[in-house]
Amino acid sequence: MLELRLVQGSLLKKVMESIKDLVNDANFDCSATGFSLQAMDSSHVALVSLLLRSEGFEHYRCDRNLSMGMNLGNMAKMLKCAGNDDIVTVKADDGGDCVTFMFESPNQDKIADFEMKLMDIDSEHLGIPEAEYEAIVRMPSAEFARICKDLSTIGDTVVISVTKEGVKFSTRGDIGTANIVLRQNTSVDKPEEATIIEMETPVSLTFALRYMNSFTKATPLASQVTVSLSSELPVVVEYKIAEMGYLRFYLAPKIEE
């Protein structure tokens, strides 16, 4: 038996909107630790890793580890029917073939339940080794989204370079080139507007903007995004989910042929 009650149901709505276009089908894993998902996009270029820790739920019951295969587009459709202030409860029986999403309005005057069929999904879990990153950039998530969107109107790839001068996002296309440099900025009044650059070694890597733009659909989840870079490693674009966990996107770099 599985029963997870999330007072801030909008978090789950936002998570689904962030990943549904990148991943079609995925297994949600439930354990005592929490509700998690790891899935690759269909091209096997990017990896999504979600964790919602059990402590973040108002009620968390998971009698035994359960893996539930879901079509994320269908799950997103159902969660879209929840109000932004609704409490969302996810329910499933051990060995059952469906999952129920229950939506309660804040004053309990409307209760809805949506049942969705589960599916068998063959997916292998990848081991993500702990890594020391050469550069970690923390910046406003909306700024990161803006940069990726702007650059994708000029080119298809972005070169992200971190030096002691700052972080540079560059692209080139048929019409010309673009460079956007951000410097560390900790002197802002609000911490969510800060840009913090931690650099061990200068690093420069090239990524497909199509994927970066897809990751930025998670912008509503967090005011800040963390971009971790190391040569020879996928970039990690991380959105923290308040008090609960994270949504991380890993993207393999492009290399010169």
Binding site: V45, E124, H125, L126, G127, A208, K254, E257
Partner: peptide, 14 residues
């Protein structure tokens, strides 16, 4: 010419 690498090149199945 640039080549897109696969994620499996970096992360092995558990």
């Amino acid at each position: 010419k640039q080549k897109q690498q696969a994620i499996s090149r970096f992360f092995a199945p558990k």
